[in-house]
Design a protein around this nucleic acid. Sequence first.
RNA 1: GCCGGGGUGGUGAAAUCGGUAAACACAGGGGACUUAAAAUCCCCCGCCCGAAAGGGCUUGCGGGUUCGAGUCCCGCCCCCGGCACCA
Length: 817
Amino acid sequence: MANEDKDGYDPSTVEEKWQRLWEERGTNTFTREDLESAEDPFYNLMMFPYPSAEGLHVGNIYAFTGADVHGRYQRLRGKTVFEPMGFDAFGIHSENFALKQGTHPMDLIPSNVKNFKRQLKRIGGMFDWDHSVDTTDPAYYKWTQWVFLQLFNAGLAERKEAPVNWCPSCMTVLANEQVIGGECERCGTPVEQRRIAQWFFRITDYAQRLLDNLDDIDWSQTTMKAQSNWIGRSTGAQLHFPVLGRDGEETGASIEVYTTRPDTVFGATYMVLSPEHPMVDQVTDDGLRAPVYAYIDKASKRDLVARQKVDKTKSGVPTGGFCRNPATGERIPIWIADYVLMDYGTGAIMAVPGHDTRDFEFAEQFDLPIVRVVAGPDDAADAPLEEAYLGPGRLVNSGDFDGTDVSESVDAVTAWAQDGGWGEAKVNFRLHDWCISRQRYWGPPIPIIHCDVCGPVAVPESDLPVVLPRVEDFKPDDSGVSPLARVASWYETTCPECGEDARRETDVSDTFLDSGWYFLRYPSTDFDDRPFDTEITKRWLPVDTYIGGNEHAVLHLLYSRFLTMVLKDLGHLDFEEPYTVFRAHGLIIADGAKMSKSKGNVIVPDPIIAEFGADSFRMYLMFLGPYEEGGDYRPQGIQGPFGFLHRLWDTVVSADDGTPDPDVERKVHQTIRQVTEQVPQLSYNTAIAAMMECLNVVRAGGRDAVRAEVEPLVVMVAPFAPHMAEELWERLGHEGGLFDGAHWPVYDEEKATELTVEIAVQVNGKLRATISVAADASEDQVITAARSEENVERHLDGKDERRVIHVPGRLVNFVVG
RNA sequence: GCCGGGGUGGUGAAAUCGGUAAACACAGGGGACUUAAAAUCCCCCGCCCGAAAGGGCUUGCGGGUUCGAGUCCCGCCCCCGGCACCA
């Protein structure tokens, strides 16, 4: 009894021991020299967390464990694996939490980071804590500001007025995500729009390249799809509609519209301008100014998000102005309506109510003419329209184009418009320029000085970082500008170019800028005179595998791709895609629902780790479902992996030298084959199942194992349960750490080959027997054996045998009638 | 509405070049060992008929292709995630 206790598996002792040894030996940390000279480097990256006050949640641990398993596997294959971790601690999230708590973020963040680090060490991640980043550290954001300046100097950062969501009660600018149904998420006050000058990065210049490069990177399908949808390329035409004066003559001005259906231009019976369109004044008839302005005013009160909600009823006002339809020559009225967005296309449309659902609704509501210009296969040219017709067919009521099939009509009409000088083919993107200004406190100050003489001037690189000052009152106020704008002693400065009095930019930058380049920094944190070292970057980047949540499928991943392209174009990098492989992990849910405090189904990890150990917890998380799909967390489920690790421990510590049993050895080699195939594909749940099956065979009937039967299992289990694997590896008598060599087992195809196979025997597709035959049995032998099964004979008896289908190694099917 | 991903036992899930549906595990039941418990080992565990042998049915629903369909095709329903008046 006492002896058994001594040799029994005690997770906390083992885990404490190996975490201490890894730290003492520097198992997971690199020196600068290591990074400069690493052979076979593998950069294993995972999305860094926002260090909340609550600590790591199960979702974080799931994400990091899956990535860590991958890193450890690569290491056991002999790669030099760099696996860094850091903290994305700037941003509105932290700031709001600090406001709520009444604690300054500069005090809050360090304690959160400390707690996160403790937890991250406890779960046994292979992190290099000598190369960590904290985005709120001036030594880091110095280089975030440097990145901004690279774009500024290249003309890729520009300042322009743009609308923001403004909560008049909280007196603050809100992000779109903070506006729920047109109201402030915190106080429920209707949100308004304000126009403020902000900094934008010209990501739209890179839209086509961001789209094209998707063909060359190995990413989760869903993520690539999300990116291409977000970029939203569409092809069509830009058409010019001449504006008519009160006399009915052309004024020389024209309204530009973008359309994907230029072929329906003969059906354009009116025009619509967005309320913000710059030509509204110009086209509005004096007699209608009052209602038009009232409408525009009302529209501006509605926030940007609510505007985009589909209302049943459309609203709008006529301007009294007219255009000429360049295809038909007819005079058509110009309306204003908020269903047209200034954000997309040209902010104006030609309305074709016959063939656009929204235009149809609007025309019905305001009694505007509806003309059919496309007829479906069974429609007459003048068949009345009950709803917009969007299907295939031929053009009608379209002059010379009558009869043209819609499959060709877009190109044909575009060419005609081009010849006539009133249009041209045009590609349009949904993607907008990236607004990086935040009228907030908790972020890196944008490194710009505004000078009355010189305009916006870059802070000289030698003056970086522009340090965020400690401001006790960092709450945003009614002014709509950053709290930094209240600190004269900070923003008053002199122009670096002319020396006149000048003022610092008081906005801070978007958190996505912090996280847009962090992967470049990790390997170079030993350098404080450059953002990333050229030689080290050449050796380690781009990132080999990036793992993270699909909630960042669009913004973070798109922005970091963009910044990488820019830095390449500016000569700082020699690659333009940051992440060669990206895999999105799934979501952990509990009781069929996303974990949330309000549902009361949040799993707190610390007590589970205390009770079962990090190894069992890691293994269970990887076992509960396919990693890329997530799964349902059930508290009892951990018993499976926990019991498995115990049995593995007992088997290994009691294993003797000896010759492996051939049947067991076969199973072991089959398992090596399967696990080696599945682990790199992140099919962790099935790989673990295979190892369990293997151990069941090793232990079947309570037999004692020999070392050669279990040693491969110790190594294969190591990515999942690294502490226990190290301990067993040592007990098996190996010198040096398990992870310090290419110890992954190799299977022998011959030893993995089955000698006999089970064959299903069917009669007319129904299973009637299974037989066991030698793997190399001939077709005749198999069929003869199948036919002689008693139950098969009975079903064949007296019937015509029409066909016999033999799938080697699988089944025999007798088709009778 | 659009774009992804799904729908399989009491539960988490396996199996998709079409070939024995339910591997592995949780929960449950029975047994061995034990003074007892734990641990360990063995057996049962989709539904219906049957004493058994065996038979019938079963992968959200309805059709189809095929010797054979969870897997392929057509048409639906439902759930999860994202986008959404994008012209």
